[in-house]
Design a protein around this nucleic acid. Structure first.
Ligand SMILES: [Mn+2]
Ligand SMILES: [Mn+2]
Ligand SMILES: [Zn+2]
Ligand SMILES: [Zn+2]
Lengths: 143, 143
DNA sequence: TTATTAGATAATAATCATTATTATTTAAGA
DNA sequence: TCTTAAATAATAATGATTATTATCTAATAA
């Protein structure tokens, strides 16, 4: 989704187009590492030093309502935001919190097969696989 | 896991066996509805009126360390606790928070196939499927 | 059985991510 | 340009979870 599409999408839903919104949306929608609200805040601050953390939260909420991002809640860290809504696996390191997507045709295919079996109509899904990342597994092989 | 197995497990790890622990462990390990800490607290209180919520949290932490329960963190509600560690799908209603397990041989089989494909060694997984429960979908068909 | 003590519990304070509030600013339309 | 409803920035409030600490007790051994 490019900037023009984003602007059209916001206007069509009656939301005003502000520079802060564009900046936050662009950042999260193009992100690959599932950033937290604080990380987004620190990043956008580089361009908009006066931006408020509250605005970041409000905009993330807006993107959730539009179905453009999913909020991933955790018990041991703050929420992370994911712009990828198609069925995929979030590979998560339980030690450092690093998250990346594993996407493959087979993941979608097998997931849809399971869905068919359940007979349910999912609004969305969240598939997490917890495994130590390379960095963390080297640091402390067997803690 | 029966009471005797639980007691042996606790003792073997150097943990003391207390009535509060037994009560909390029994409750969560036999639960099917993924209760919250508060719900566990309210339930155990019926038998142990003097129990502290802090003890519930400490015991749940202990069970996590022992690998007997998984904590499911959410962004819009407090954490829920799941004693089922085998690969299965948590069917979650985003409106009322109801959670139940969908377990079928195919889920495990297809999940293991995905794992093999990734080449990763998962410590654990979390497979969430969000869909309105019957009750909620009747109450407000299209909100 | 009783004494010892490390660990557990109950009560409660502290934390901190997130949400709510409000005065000020601004995008959008007339 | 003017109007105004919505957005922003600043900040206070919330609430689930964690930390602290004074008792209490399960486990061990005299
Ligand atoms: Mn993802
Ligand atoms: Mn479950
Ligand atoms: Zn890591
Ligand atoms: Zn429901």
């Amino acid at each position: 989704m490019n900037e023009q599409q984003l602007i059209t999408r916001l206007r069509s839903k009656g939301y005003k187009v502000t520079p802060q919104r564009i900046a936050i949306c662009q950042l999260i929608l193009s992100s690959k590492d599932h950033p937290s609200a604080e990380q987004i805040y620190q990043e956008v601050k580089k361009t908009y030093p006066a931006i408020s953390l509250a605005t970041v939260y409000i905009t993330l909420d807006l993107l959730k309502k539009l179905g453009l991002v999913q909020e991933l809640g955790f018990s041991d860290q703050s929420s992370r935001y994911d712009p990828n809504n198609s069925p995929h696996i979030n590979v998560i390191c339980p030690r450092c919190g690093k998250i990346y997507d594993y996407e493959a045709p087979n993941v979608k295919k097998l997931w849809y097969r399971i869905i068919a079996e359940t007979g349910l109509k999912p609004l969305r899904q969240r598939l997490d696989l917890y495994t130590l990342c390379n960095k963390c597994s080297q640091e402390n092989p067997t803690p």
